[in-house]
Every structure is written in C-alpha cells, then in structure tokens.
Design a protein around this nucleic acid. Structure first.
Ligand SMILES: O=c1ccn([C@H]2C[C@H](O)[C@@H](COP(=O)(O)OP(=O)(O)OP(=O)(O)O)O2)c(=O)[nH]1
Ligand SMILES: [Mg+2]
Length: 822
DNA sequence: AGTCAGGTGCG
DNA sequence: CGCACC
DNA sequence: GACT
C-alpha cells in the first residue's frame, strides 16, 4: 500500500471489531429524492455565492457538529472509561480513586464500576434479521422489513423534482433555520402516495434526523445530579447551547437563572473572563466553579465529573489557578504556547492530512461569528420559503460511463447489489433495476405477500440518476496498483485535495472509533481516487458515484468550492492528535490504550518507557519504534524471504513458503512480511506445528528472529506466528507473520493472506449474500445465520484448496493478486 | 431498520 | 466481553 | 455514512 494510507493501512484498519458496544446505529437518513443533497444554487452560480452560502450554513453545521460530537463522544466514552480513564487526576498512577476536589458533592466511587452500571446499553439484537439471505432457512423467510423498505424505495424512484433549500438570511438563525433547512417539498409525483409514507419521506429528505433529547438517563448515571449550572450567556437561544443545556439536564443538572443558587458557571467558549466579569453579581462566581462549556460535555462523555481545574476547561483569560498547578503540569495540555494561531483557512494549501492538526486546546473554535452570539437577541422572523427548482435534469449519462476499467466482478464485490438476481436490465431503458425484484422472486409464501404485491406495480420511473447501474462498475477493487502511487496519487489525481480532506474526516472518525463512518469514508475515498480522469466538483456528480451518498456529495462540493470543509475546523484538531498517532503505531496499542495514556499525561515514547506500564510487546515495539514503523522495501522483503525459505528447506524440504500480503500484491514496500507455510499432504495445521517449532528455533539461533509477539498453535485452527526479525548483518527490525496452512485450505488461506483486507471483506460479504461463508479455511455453503447474527450452521465445505475455484464458485472473475487493491 | 468479514489470543 | 491483531 |  505504499504511501497511501487509506486502504489496508494500519490506521485504516484500526477500528476495532464491534463488540456490539460500538454499534453506533446513529441516525441515518435515507435518501429518497435524488437531489436531496442539492444546495440552492445551481452549477452556474458564481463561486462567490456558493461560498457565501456555505458560510451562512456555518451556524447550522455547527449544530450538526455538536450533535455528532455528542454522539461520538457517547460512544467514545465507553472505550475511555473502560480504559480506566482517570477523571480528575492526570497524574500517572493510581487508577481508581479520582480526586475531585471541587466537585465533590457527588463523589464518584470508582469510575470503572460506575460506568458499567451507567451504560445500560442493551444491545438488543433484534431477531429476524436475515432478510437478504438467499438461502434462507424456512423460518427465516418470514421477512417483514422488506415490505416497508420496498415501499419507500418505490417512492424514491418516482420523484423527479428537485428540492432546494433556502439560503439562510444570515442574521436569522437557530431553530427556525434548522427547521427551515430541513423543510422540503414533497415531490409531485410522489405526493399521491405521500400519505402512506409521508413521515418516512420527510425523514429521508431532511438533512438529518436530530434526536430529541427525550431519553431518560438512569438516575445512577446522572452525574450532575444535585448540581446547578448557570450559563453565560444564560439562555438557550443558541441552539447548540440549548442542546447542551438539555443534555446537562438529562444528566441531572439544574439550570439556574441566578448565580446565587448555582454550583457551576458554564461559560461560552467565545467569551473570555473579562467578558463575564461584567455580569451583575459576578462576584458570586468567585466561590463557584467556573468552567467553559467543554466541561459538561466531557463530563458526560466520561460519565463522571471531571476535574474542573484542568486547563482545558478554563475560561479564556481566567486568572490562572494561583500557579500552584497541582502535580505534574502536563505540558502539552496547557502549554499550547500560541493559542491564538487559529487562522481558519484561507490560503489552505497546507497539507490537511497529517500534521495540520494545529488546533489550539482551549480555543479550538474559530470565531464563527454567527453561532451563538452572546447578546440575548432573539431570533426574529425568517421568512422561510421553499424554492422548487424544477429541473428536468435527465439522468446523468454518467453512471457507468464513468471510467474505463470495470468488470463485472468488480461490481459484485463492492456492492454485490443483487448479485445473483441481478437481473435483466440491460437495455430496458427503465433502469430500474431498481432491484425490487430481488425479493420478489424469492419466496413470499409466509405471509407478507399482500403488500408486496401492491408495491411492485408502479415503479418504472427513472428518476434516480443515482447509482442505478447494477453491475457495471461498482468499483471495488480493480486497480493494480502499487507503484503508481508516487506520481499518481499526488500529482495525477485531480481529486487529490478532495481526497485529502475526506481523509481527514476519516481520520477524525477513526479517532472517535466510529466504525461505520470510517468504512463509509474509506469507500468513498476509494471510489474518488479511481476517478482519475476528471475532478469531481459538484454534488450531483459525486452523488452519481458508488458509495458516495448525499452527505459526502455535499461535502465534496464544498471542498471544491471552498477548498475546505467547515466540519473539520471544529471537528478535529487536538494537539494530542499527533501523540495519538505516535502511540497508535505501537504494536498492541489501540485507541483505547493510547487515549488512556494520553489522559494520563504521557506525550512521548520516553514517557511511556519510563512511566507507563507496558506489556512486553509494547516495550519491544517502542524500543524499535523507528524500525518497526518504517516500511520494508520490496528488495529487502525478497531477501528476508530468501533467508527464511532457505532455513525452512533445511528443516523440511517439503515445506513451501510463499510470501503473501502486500508483497504478493506487488507492492513496492510492505509493512511486514507475511509467509504462508504449507506442505503437501497436510490436512491440518497441526501437521505443521512440529516443523514450525524447529523453524522458529533455528531462526532464533541464527539471530534472524529477535522477538515473538504472539504465537498460536491451536489444533484445528490456523496457527500463526507473529514476531520480529532482521537480516543477519544487523538489519532493521521487521515484523514477520507466519501462517500455517494445511494443503487442503491453501486456496482460502491464500486469498486471506493476500488481501488486501478490503478485498477480503468484500469477497466475504459477497459470499454471505450468496448464502455462503468465506474465511481463511475455506468457502462454505448452506450457511445459516440466524437470529443473533451468529452463524447457526457452519455450513458445508465447498472449496478450500484452490484459490481459483473459490473465485469461480463465488462467481467472481479471477483476479491477480496485483488486482486486489481496494 | 438492518447491514456493513471473519477470525485469533489475551486479560 | 473488550481490545488488539491478521 | 451508504445502501438496501
Ligand atoms: O483486518 C484484516 C487485516 C488483514 N487481513 C489479511 C489481508 C492482508 O493482506 C493480510 C496480511 O495482513 P497485513 O497486515 O500484513 O497487511 P498487508 O496487506 O500485507 O499490508 P502491509 O504492507 O501493511 O503488510 O491479512 C485481513 O483479512 N483482515
Ligand atoms: Mg503484510
């Protein structure tokens, strides 16, 4: 994967498996009208206006951001809490026992325990999910969701008119606007059926669903219980603040209007100490806890009252805490020398990607004039008026024409839209492949047929200029790629900047551990990267592409017009981000641990080596940080391979070793070296274990192997060895992976170990959609995945030996390893 | 409203 | 079960 | 977030 970080890169994969804790299930808007993303202006509109428009939207987006932020943090907090996050005391040791000097009204016993109680996250797997399993089990066929879903889709297809959103009259704001922005006009054609689905249509069209804070937080979780917050400004005019206030209330805080009965003073970020001093009776605040509005948010995030003394929560200009700053002053936390740098964007140019994350701790937000003005103005009028732009825009000719390389299987992999049933379409002008068919041929007997009957009629409308094209391109992984990146990725791709920005978004979500958004962005980026011919500028254009929906499409347009994404301005950029990246590259360190360390005040590798408690692997990994994080030139991989193969031959001449991973895909550089070890005639990896043991000991003796990170020799399971090695003379430390594979599973293992990971996943996804299951041991069929999503039946082995046959059975065109970059 | 790959080892 | 890894 |  060379330089390109996205696919397959460690970072990209860094999200962890769900563990159902992170099943975010946030909201999701279902797009119905093709142009739901459409902004009021049309293509021809002058750039200036577009920019102006975006600026106007700033306030609103801020809101969105706020939402995201909260949502995200809610997810995040679990990870952090579990990671023994220490609420108040940033000092290194002592885990439990948070000392909350000031906010002790409600001492929180032992955070860990508390958290588990607090999060009533009841996964509730919801039964009956296997709607799309083709080979559904008899009882599983009782699919219900399909009906409503289908209905919705139909409507979607019919709408032809475009909706426009009203540009916001700047001065106005808040909720009025919010509403306005979401207001939509019902497509004429759909109006007929509007009645039956109006709610969903509305939902689908509006930009996003905002969760009402109607949820009830269990009393035990109400960390603010007993506390009284006085806000400055003390009103809920600003929607974002209103939201925060509501949130605080949810957690037990009382919103007070007077300083007299307040316990905490929550100051708007944009206000400085000198500003709030003017407040009448401000003197009272001296005895109160004064923090900025980050404090409640963070506290909620961590489900515990944090130490309000942290610089992070200090109001700008607030007389510093008598300089007795507790123990250990965490440098980076408060330092932030030039906290004024800001510099929103302007010239841009800077590499958005990595280091640009130059934010400022305490003052991360730009001025963003609009958004929450201190003065108690009240929202005024706002004459919302909806504009209907009738645009008979014909379905984009694009769609499949997008670009050259397309192959059918590509289409599969990625979207696997309707693989098998991928019907007919072809010329049939009605694109509709809309797919509804998918379900119809399959089985309706159980009971829900009635509805299904009525829905199918209508439909034939084009409307969706969206990704209709069923198979044709749906990218996935076609591209050979490895070496072209030096030149191509950087200079060649016209969408470089866009990708760069989106990648930042992706990074952001990575930090937040939002699995699905990460993959969504990853996919979007991948398809964008494949548009090598022209620059995607408008939302429509972008929306046409697979895996780019309305929201990312909008962002793309914004990026192209403003060369920036407002979302990033306040979404990202904490100074600790670089540290986070630093830590994440350590083997056996993920988000959770890295964040934990950061919260403990560690900022450098040295800190970790001296102050943190590390596992053996982590220590090794830090001690050879630079070696292990640098990529291995192909030539060196070849040498390493030769070395190992030679030794292996001496141990057992019948054993075969093949280098897989990125090397097999033709990469110029690799993050590690992956060996697939097999021997003819073997049927279980246990047959190879003895060989492995001797090989490993030999390699150690030769000073080739220098560390073992993990080793598994379970019978029946694939066994693998992960360690570190180096070329004899004293080469750099390198990561090495050995996978033991019996001959009978060779093909499957080959696919697995060759990757890349995205390719594997799409293949497996495809298999799943075909009622099969693919893993590193083979391809199985008649798999029953029932309820709980857990495989009920393992399925019957179809093929495991031959890589090619697995492809065949899956109906996927053979792909050379070099074509497996997705 | 559900899905988004599928597995391992460790604590 | 969560985390980290492939 | 995207797609079904
Ligand atoms: O989440 C994952 C990670 C990896 N793999 C497979 C594909 C991958 O190709 C192979 C080896 O993993 P590795 O981490 O070595 O990735 P790589 O493709 O070899 O890239 P790199 O150059 O970073 O080693 O294991 C997966 O199936 N799922
Ligand atoms: Mg590799």
């Amino acid at each position: 994967m060379a330089s390109v970080p996205s696919p397959g890169s460690r970072v990209a994969r860094r999200y962890k498996k769900p563990g159902r804790l992170f099943d975010t299930l946030l909201t999701q808007s279902t797009r119905i009208v093709p142009s739901s993303f459409r902004s009021p202006m049309d293509e021809e509109q002058p750039l200036q206006e577009k920019i102006a428009f975006f600026n106007q939207l700033d306030a609103l987006d801020k809101l969105d951001e706020e939402d995201d932020r909260i949502d995200a943090r809610e997810q995040q907090h679990r990870a952090k809490c579990k990671a023994f996050f220490q609420p108040a005391v940033p000092t290194v040791k002592e885990k439990g026992n948070p000392i909350n000097p000031l906010s002790s009204p409600r001492p929180h016993p032992e955070p860990r325990r508390t958290t588990s109680v607090l999060t009533p996250t009841a996964p509730t797997p919801a039964p009956g999910g296997s709607a799309e399993i083709i080979k559904a089990t008899p009882e599983a066929t009782t699919i219900d969701s399909t009906t409503s879903r289908t209905r919705r889709r139909l409507i979607a297809d019919t709408s032809t008119s475009f909706i426009a959103e009203t540009p916001i009259p700047d001065s106005t704001r808040p909720r009025v606007l919010t509403t306005l922005r979401r207001s939509i006009t019902m497509p004429v054609s759909a109006s007929a059926s509007a009645a039956e689905q109006s709610p969903s249509a509305t939902t689908a069209l509006r930009k996003r669903k905002r969760s009402s804070s109607g949820k009830v937080i269990p009393e035990s979780a109400q960390i603010f219980r007993g506390l009284s917050f006085f806000y400055i400004p003390n009103d809920d005019v600003a929607p974002a603040r209103k939201l925060r206030i509501a949130k605080a209330k949810d957690y037990g805080a009382e919103w007070v209007r007077s300083l007299h009965n307040a316990t905490h003073v929550i100051v708007d970020k944009h206000l400085s100490y000198s500003d709030i001093q003017k407040i009448p009776e401000f003197g009272l605040a001296a005895s109160l806890i004064v923090v900025n509005d980050e404090y409640p948010i963070d506290s909620i995030s961590f489900r515990t009252l944090l130490n309000p003394d942290q610089s992070r929560y200090r109001v700008t200009g607030f007389p510093s805490p008598t300089s007795e700053s507790t123990v250990i002053t965490i440098s980076s936390r408060d330092s932030e020398p030039s906290l004024q740098v800001k510099e929103p964007k302007s010239a841009g140019r800077q590499s958005a990607r990595k280091q640009d994350t130059e934010g400022s701790e305490g003052t991360p937000r730009q001025e963003d004039s609009s958004f929450e003005n201190p003065r108690p103005t009240k929202t005024t009028q706002a004459g919302p008026f909806e504009i209907q732009i009738q645009s008979s825009v014909p379905p984009h000719p694009t769609a499949q024409t997008t670009d050259g390389p397309k192959d059918e299987l590509t289409s599969y992999i990625e979207l696997l839209q309707q693989y098998k049933d991928l019907p007919l379409d072809h010329e049939e002008d009605d694109d509709i492949q809309s797919t509804k068919d998918a379900q119809e041929d399959s089985d309706p007997e159980p009971g829900s047929e009635d509805e299904r009957a009525r829905k199918k009629p209508a439909t034939r409308s084009r409307a969706s200029l969206k990704k209709t094209i069923p198979f044709e391109d749906r990218f996935a992984c076609n591209r050979g790629g490895t070496k072209d990146n030096p030149a191509s990725s950087a200079a060649n791709n016209p969408n470089a900047r866009t990708i760069e920005v989106l990648q930042s978004m992706c990074d952001y979500y990575t930090k937040i551990n939002d699995r699905w958004r990460i993959t969504a962005y990853r996919k979007a980026i991948t398809t964008l990267r494949q548009q090598t011919t022209k620059k995607i500028t408008t939302a429509e254009e972008a929306y046409t592409l697979p895996n780019i929906g309305s929201r990312i499409a909008r962002k793309i347009e914004e990026i192209c017009t403003t060369n920036n994404l407002r979302r990033l301005q306040y979404a990202n950029l904490e100074p600790t981000d670089k540290v986070l990246d630093l830590f994440l590259k350590i083997h056996d360190v993920g988000l959770s641990r890295a964040n934990k360390w950061i919260s403990q005040g560690h900022r450098t590798l040295e800190d970790l080596l001296t102050k943190a408690d590390l596992s053996a692997n982590q220590r090794i990994s830090i001690e050879h940080y630079s070696d292990l994080t640098s990529r291995i030139p192909r030539s060196e991989v070849t040498q390493l391979a030769a070395f190992v193969q030679r030794e292996a031959f001496l141990v057992d001449p019948d054993v075969e070793l093949l280098v897989g991973g990125s090397y097999r895909r033709g990469s110029d550089t690799s993050g590690d070296i992956d060996f697939i070890v097999t021997k003819r005639g073997t049927t279980s990896c246990s047959d190879l274990v003895p060989f492995m043991n001797s090989l490993i000991s030999v390699l150690y003796k030769k000073n080739f192997l220098v560390a073992t990170l993990s080793q598994s020799r379970r019978e029946g399971e694939g066994s693998k060895f992960l360690g570190c090695c180096r070329l004899p003379p004293g080469g750099k430390w390198r990561r090495i992976d050995l996978l033991l594979v019996p001959e009978t599973e060779y093909g499957a293992a080959l696919i697995y170990f060759t990757g890349n990971d995205i390719f594997n996943r799409s293949l497996r996804l495809l298999a799943g959609k075909k009622g099969m299951r693919l893993n590193q041991r083979g391809l199985f069929r008649d798999v029953m995945r029932g309820r709980g999503r857990v495989g009920v039946t393992e399925g019957e082995l179809v093929e495991g030996r031959s890589e090619r046959r697995i492809f065949e059975v899956l109906g996927v065109r053979w792909r050379e390893p070099s074509e497996r970059w997705c």
